[in-house]
Amino acid sequence: MLHPMSAQPIPFGRSSHGRRDSQPSSSSTVQLPRTLARPEFVEVSPASISAVAPELVNVPIDYIRRRLWSEAPQMMAGLSSLAPSHVPSSLPRSHLPPLLSIPLRAPSSGITPTYPTHVLAVSSSKSPHESNALMIPVHSLVLAAQCARLPQLHTPNTPVSHTLNLPVIPMSIPSPRAFTILRSFMYDHRLDRVLEALFPVPSSFLANLSHSGIRATMSSGPALHQLSLYLCEASSQNLQTLTACTARVKDLWQDMVALGLFDTELWDTLDLAWEIVLGAMNLAVVMRQNGQ
Rank of each mutant, 00 (worst) to 15 (best):
R65E: 06
I111E: 08
S70Q: 12
P88Y: 11
P113L: 11
H118L: 05
Y63D: 07
R65H: 03
L82R: 02
G110Y: 10
P107S: 11
G110V: 07
S101Y: 02
V122S: 04
L68K: 00
L99K: 05
I111T: 15
V119R: 00
P84L: 09
S124Q: 07
E71F: 11
P113V: 09
P92E: 05
H95L: 10
V87L: 15
S89K: 13
S123G: 14
L96Q: 09
H86E: 14
T117N: 03
L120D: 01
S125M: 11
V119C: 13
I64Y: 08
P113Q: 10
S101D: 10
A77P: 00
K126P: 00
A72F: 08
L91T: 07
R67T: 10
S90Q: 14
R67E: 12
S101C: 08
S85I: 09
A72S: 14
G78E: 02
A83S: 15
P107L: 13
Y63F: 13
A106I: 13
S90W: 04
P107C: 09
E71C: 05
S101E: 12
S89P: 00
L120M: 05
P98Q: 03
E71M: 14
P103D: 10
L79W: 04
S108T: 11
H86I: 00
L79E: 03
P98T: 04
Y115K: 06
H118S: 06
L99V: 09
Y115V: 03
R67I: 05
I111A: 04
R105M: 15
L104N: 02
